[in-house]
Design a binder for these strands. Structure first.
Length: 630
RNA sequence: GCCGGUGUAGCUCAGUGGUAGAGCAACGCAUUCGUAAUGCGUGGGUCGAGGGUUCGAAUCCCUCCACCGGCUCCA
């Protein structure tokens, strides 16, 4: 019998299993004709077989998923009352959810780990068992595994697959590694609460997260990265570098200290400049409005639990959670012609939302934040051009801030579930096509998410990552078919009749707070020269050179650099250390030699001592620093 | 909001029933120094808040608040 392995035709025996053909110990599964299978698979004539190791992405998923099964077996042995929920592989590792009598403790994790080592040492085979649906249902019911029964009830196939190792069996599609001994190094990382099916009205479960690797080096490396990521945490760095503080005035409320405020101001200057260049008109709108406005917009109906409301006199008021209704009112302040479009209103608009207490997270999830918001009112024929411009603006700005990697998602509606989405079919089709066309035209990789659209329209979201690899939504482009309808937003067409305007919400940075948080983590607090709140520190070696240092300081501030002068009575090594810890890009050190020769000794962040140089050479260096503002 | 953890000086943390500690920072004095911490000294705390147990509570118990890791949410 002939099969193709790694592109080469091989002769194999009938009934032979993959495990004897692909016997290298690092091969854990295989892809046969594009489908993932266990190594117990018996190849058929003409199969195209690719071995899979841990180094494949699919291989990692299989490896982690198998580790999850081992963990579940250990938990069942230690806690026989535990009910199995689900235990998938995730981006980094795996988890398994259990319903248990009491939450897991740290000591429990140690015991579970010990039990897992026992299971691994036994090198139990992962055996695929295919059962008729009814039989499997009966079996799990007898075992009291109610969640598995619920899952089986939703499977429409006649046969379901389970995997068995030792006397542990779990409902599972597979594939798995051949035996438990293949799992070499693992670590249980944390526990947390969760809900069955992610539904907070259903059973509360306990989740254990873990990760595993094929070598100790890989595991140690991963744990090391986790530790290092903690040092990049924007909450820690923000305090250390005196950029901002969070939560002092109340949970989720941010104080921008002078240094953080400087960074923000520069970001805003850049933002304003780029927007004006592209035909946006800047507006300002109030922080509060009568409840009536939010009733018209529908926010009162759909967004109520997130809105902060209060009474002013007899009237109900709302602290604005969004800027859109205000921009619409500006648009509607007069009749608009098709010739006026597109109209693009932009605002750094501060909004307040009541976010549930458990979701707040540093600067990345707050209750008061400033969106770099804009609303584009245009004709249907202008949609594609506008989307294209927005994406290019987003890419341009991301690039200037040093973000080169991000994840793009296109969220469209579920065509089978039109009930959940407002607006006309043709509008949706047109908008979704426009978003998708632009992504394709600009050659941007994206993930299409069916059913993930907002109820009012499809959207493109760009996600940035924090130091721990968590994704946070930054730029977003959203169509809105709902608000123009509710507010009756129109323009007069060439045919002299009113037409519905197309409205696009968009944010490039997302929110100043969140953007600042990701920016700090991305640069590990070391802001690029143009953003650094302090760009240069001038430091003296002895008191005798203070006048010369002051002269340097004045010259630099006169050139609009942000400079600090350090004439303190400390050794130069101490001053160097302080400047390095504050992650300041340049340090100018002046001593007697510099004063006498009228030169400067320059130290650059990341490069160290550049030695003594002429003033002009230093100027040349500074001018060589990128500055998108000029 | 839910599950678990944590909360001591401006910051980082030690202190598990018997008089609140260290390092850094701040302040003072000495030192005037050449590229990642000069030395000595001084001040600084209702131990997150409230209640309880106890002769006595930072420490044990209860409630609340905040933060951390997740879950859920983020129209």
């Amino acid at each position: 019998m002939r099969v193709k392995i790694r592109g080469e035709v091989k002769e194999i025996k009938e009934g032979e299993r993959l495990i004897s053909i692909l016997s290298e110990p690092d091969i854990i599964a295989a892809r046969v004709n594009g489908k993932l299978v266990d190594l117990s698979y018996q190849p058929q004539e003409g199969d195209v077989i690719e071995p899979i190791t841990f180094d494949d992405d699919d291989g990692k998923q299989i490896y982690w998923h198998s580790t999850a099964h081992i963990m579940a077996q250990a938990v069942k042995e230690l806690f026989p009352n535990a009910k199995l929920a689900i235990g998938p592989a995730i981006e980094n590792g795996f988890y398994y959810d259990f319903e248990v009598d009491r939450p897991f403790t740290t000591e429990d994790l140690e015991k579970i780990e010990a039990k897992m080592y026992e299971i691994i040492a036994k090198d139990l085979t992962f055996e695929r068992v295919e059962l008729p649906r009814d039989e499997a249902r009966r079996m799990f019911e007898e075992m009291g595994e109610k969640f598995k029964v619920e899952l089986i009830d939703e499977i429409s196939d006649d046969v379901v697959s389970c995997y068995k190792q030792g006397d542990f069996i779990d409902l599972c599609k597979g594939p798995h590694v051949p035996s438990t001994g293949r799992i070499k190094y693992f670590k249980l990382l944390s526990t947390s609460g969760s809900y069955w099916r992610g539904d907070e009205t259903r059973e509360r479960l306990q989740r254990i997260y873990g990760i595993s690797f094929t070598s100790k080096e890989k595991l140690d490396h991963f744990l090391q990265l986790l530790k290092e990521a903690e040092a990049c945490d924007h909450r820690k760095l923000g305090t250390q570098l005196e950029y901002y503080s969070i939560g002092e005035p109340g949970p989720g409320l941010v104080l921008w200290h002078p240094k953080g405020a400087t960074i923000r101001r520069i970001i805003e200057e850049f933002w304003i400049k780029e927007h004006i260049k592209r035909g946006y008109q800047l507006v300002y709108t109030p922080h509060i409005a009568k409840a009536e406005l939010w009733q018209i917009s529908g926010h009162f109906e759909y967004y109520r639990e997130n809105m902060i409301t209060f009474k002013m006199g007899q009237e109900d008021y709302v602290l604005k959670p969004m800027n859109c209704p205000f921009h619409i009112l500006i648009y509607k302040s007069k009749i608009r012609s098709y010739r006026d479009l597109p109209i693009k209103y932009a605002e750094l608009g501060t909004v307040y939302r009541y976010e549930r207490s458990g979701v707040l997270h540093g600067l990345l999830r707050v209750r008061g934040f400033t969106q770099d918001d804009a609303h584009i009112f245009c004709r249907p024929d202008q949609v594609e051009t506008e989307i294209c411009e927005i994406i290019e603006l987003a890419r341009y700005m991301m690039e200037k801030f040093g973000f080169r990697e991000y994840d793009v998602t296109l969220s469209v509606r579920d065509p089978a579930d039109k009930e959940s989405f407002a607006g006309r079919d043709e509008d949706w089709q047109h908008a979704e096509a426009a978003l998708e066309n632009v992504l394709k035209k600009l050659n941007i990789p994206y993930k299409r998410m069916v059913g993930e659209a907002a109820f009012y329209g499809p959207k493109i979201d760009i996600h940035l990552r924090d130091a721990m690899g968590r994704k946070w939504q930054g730029p977003t482009i959203q169509f809105d078919f709902n608000l123009p309808e509710r507010f009756d937003v129109t323009y007069i067409g060439a045919d002299n009749t009113p037409h519905n305007v197309v409205m696009i919400h968009r944010a490039i940075l997302g929110a100043m707070e969140r953007f600042m948080g990701t920016l700090v983590e991305h640069h590990k607090g070391a802001m690029p020269f143009w953003l650094a709140p302090v760009q240069i520190v001038v430091a003296t070696i002895t008191d005798a050179v203070i006048p010369y240092a002051e002269e340097i300081y004045r010259r630099l501030t006169g050139l609009n650099y942000r400079v600090e002068l350090d004439t303190s009575n400390e050794k130069i090594s101490y001053k160097v250390r302080m400047v390095a810890e504050k992650k300041i890009p340049y340090m100018v050190i002046v001593g007697k030699k510099e004063m006498e020769s009228r030169r400067v000794a320059v130290r650059k962040r990341g490069e160290g001592d550049l030695g003594s140089m002429e003033w002009d050479a230093f100027m040349e260096l500074l001018r060589g620093e990128e500055n998108p503002l000029t």
